[in-house]
């Protein structure tokens, strides 16, 4: 019979201190929505359960005075991401992903930190975080360090975090872009794991040329990807149907380069282009406004 001990630190130092001593033997409990499922499916029970829900500092959302950096505590739930104006204004794609994230019940529990730390290729918050060039601020006994989001996952369900690490918050390059979106494909319209997801944000210059663009692909590759080639293709240009189709082709090509040709590629290769076109096409009108 498994025994577990629950630790409920009141502050970050206590938590970090505990992890320093017992990290490898500890499940970190944030929202719990993934942890419970893992434990039920037979994942090894560790002796300690570290409940982070009492650590208020993990739940703060702040914007820097110059509005350049948005900080989102790892313990912020998807529901708060959905409702906080600060996030809606300064990280609109992240806000949008919160509408279709799992279910209402799960959004009320699940945290952004948990979604990232779980390292699922299908984590819906990841592409929006990537386009904001987010970094995770990770604490352990040696102090804090920042890990760029793209380096958080070593592979599918393999986090780069050490057992002693606790994700404190994410620092995003805040932006109020002229154009932003998050889209996903699931097997149904709610309670669906993303088969594919993508996030974009962009700005244009006075001529209607793309002056800034960030694009990220989720769920298609073992780790999240920012698609620099796609971004470069669009930068400095006025989006046209031709350009979008070109971008779609390039995106598919880059995806296949990463994943290779597994059976699932038969769907993913055209679908990634289709979703890209659907998401990016409105830019044509936007750039001509």
């Amino acid at each position: 019979m498994t025994t577990m001990t629950c630790i409920r630190p009141e502050n970050l130092d206590e938590a970090v201190d505990f992890l320093h001593h017992h990290g490898p033997d500890t499940h970190i409990l944030a929202g719990g929505t993934d942890l419970m499922v893992d434990l039920r499916s037979g994942k090894h029970h560790r002796p300690y359960l570290l409940d982070t829900s009492r650590i208020d500092s993990l739940k703060t959302v702040q914007i820097s005075d110059d509005l350049s950096r948005l900080s989102i505590g790892s313990g912020v739930t998807l529901t708060r991401i959905n409702t906080l104006p600060l996030i809606k204004d300064h990280a609109p794609a992240l806000h949008k992903c919160s509408f279709t994230f799992a279910s209402r019940q799960i959004r009320n529990m699940a945290t952004i930190g948990g979604n990232v730390a779980h390292a699922s290729p299908c984590g819906d918050t990841i592409p929006p975080l990537v386009i904001h060039e987010a970094e995770a601020v990770v604490a352990n006994k040696d102090g804090n360090r920042n890990i760029p989001l793209l380096e958080m996952n070593k592979g599918a369900y393999q986090s780069a975090l050490h057992p002693e690490d606790l994700v404190v918050k994410f620092i995003l390059q805040a932006r109020q872009p002229g154009f932003s979106d998050f889209q996903k494909i699931g097997r149904r319209k709610a309670l669906a794991t993303s088969r594919m997801s993508m996030a974009v944000m962009a700005d244009k210059d006075s001529q209607g040329c793309i002056s800034f663009i960030r694009f990220s692909l989720g769920a298609c590759t073992p780790t999240p990807q920012r698609m620099h080639d796609v971004e470069s293709l669009f930068t400095g240009k006025i989006p046209s149907v031709k350009l979008i189709n070109q971008g779609a082709g390039l995106l598919a090509e880059k995806m296949v380069e990463i994943t290779g040709r597994r059976p699932s590629i038969t769907y993913k290769e055209p679908a990634v282009q289709g979703l890209f076109k659907r998401m990016i096409y409105p830019m044509v009108t936007w750039c001509r406004q």
Binding site: N245, P270, G274
Partner: peptide
């Protein structure tokens, strides 16, 4: 008629390729 089968049919019917074509 899953995502895969419907997209296949869309590709086979030409609709996938015809969507957002340059005029």
């Amino acid at each position: 008629a899953s995502l895969e089968r419907v997209l296949d049919a869309s590709i086979a019917s030409g609709h996938f390729n015809n969507c957002y074509q340059e005029s």
